[in-house]
């Protein structure tokens, strides 16, 4: 159901949510937007967060021998591209990874769809920021907040003004009209195993791992024993020790590992889960120190190679 809320209504909604959840939100810190604990709707900054809120569900490192009881958390100000990452990831790990699953079930993400496509971003290629799957989605149309709630959160909206789908449809149309959509569809068939892109990338890649760490859909981790614990830690498939076997990494060269990353995103996941493992957020490109642009993998003319 959709509702039209005023600024005052949003404060009320926030306080209703706060009764059930620990509340977090996007706030500005010296020009970068980060997630912090917040106490009121007025503390939340609208804008592009510096990073995807992946740590709310997958910690950078934690002991997997102990599954702690999860606090209920609500996170305000999530970008749609980042949120979509969780829905894509769900297909692979929800119900399988108990840490992820418990946190997913106890976390309420309130996403704020953008009205204009950001520079470099290409979420329009994946349907744009007004998502079909969400918990509570807060779109803005002028001074109004057009808030959509999935069924289990409707009880929070008692007394607010209901509305139809019209404004959402209008916002979606406006967004897509001004956005540049990339020809993502079918990339799994166009992409080429021996493309020269991979060596071009490996000649400049400095193996920093930023593309994985920034990605709202990357979920791979490393496991190692430490003292009494077994720790899992965010990993990067660009590194040679990733998924190492007794014979080392089966992808010995950096260009092979870079290719694997793009093939996982655009070929394997599509074939196994029916979706691309990418939401068009552009964070990998933004955080890449040497400007490797994931959009080039999509738009490159493989047929001429």
């Amino acid at each position: 159901m959709n509702y039209i809320l005023t600024d005052e209504d949003m404060k009320i909604l926030f306080s209703r949510i706060k009764e059930e959840y620990d509340t977090y939100g996007t706030v500005e810190k010296e020009g970068d937007i980060v997630y912090e604990k917040v106490d009121g709707f007025e503390s939340i900054t609208f804008g592009r967060s510096r990073y995807a809120p992946k740590e709310f569900l997958i910690e950078r490192n934690e002991n997997v021998l102990n599954l702690p009881v999860q606090q209920k958390k609500a996170v305000f100000g999530v970008m749609s591209c980042d949120l979509k990452g969780f829905y894509v990831m769900d297909k692979q790990i929800l119900g399988k990874d108990p840490f992820y699953t418990q946190r997913r079930q106890n976390t309420l993400f309130v996403n704020f769809p953008c009205n204009v496509e950001c520079e470099g971003g290409f979420c329009s290629s994946f349907g744009g920021p007004l998502l079909d799957e969400f918990q509570i989605q807060v779109a803005r149309d002028g001074d109004d907040f057009i808030v959509s709630a999935s069924k289990e959160y409707e009880h929070l909206f008692d007394g607010f003004r209901k509305t139809g789908d019209e404004q959402i449809r209008k916002l979606r149309k406006n967004f897509l009209k001004n956005a540049k959509q990339l020809p993502v569809e079918g990339i799994e068939n166009r992409i080429k195993w021996d493309s020269k892109l991979w060596k071009k990338y490996s000649s400049v890649c400095i193996s920093c791992g930023a593309c994985n760490y920034s990605c709202p859909t990357c979920y791979c981790f490393d496991l190692f024993d430490q003292d009494d614990g077994r720790i899992r830690e965010w990993d990067s498939c660009i590194l040679s020790g990733f998924t190492s076997t007794s014979a080392g990494n089966v992808r010995k060269e950096l260009d092979e590992r870079l290719r694997q990353r793009f093939y996982h995103k655009f070929v394997y996941y599509r074939k196994s889960q029916g979706e691309y493992l990418c939401t068009g957020c552009n964070r990998c490109t933004e955080d890449c120190p040497v400007d490797i642009d994931i959009k080039e993998v999509v738009t490159h003319d493989y047929s001429s190679e």
Binding site: Y35, K37, E55, Q71
Partner: peptide, 13 residues
């Protein structure tokens, strides 16, 4: 950033 259940490392843009 460090919190009770979140720890983050990101470059300052």
């Amino acid at each position: 950033e460090i919190g009770e259940s979140s720890q983050r490392v990101v470059g300052y843009s």
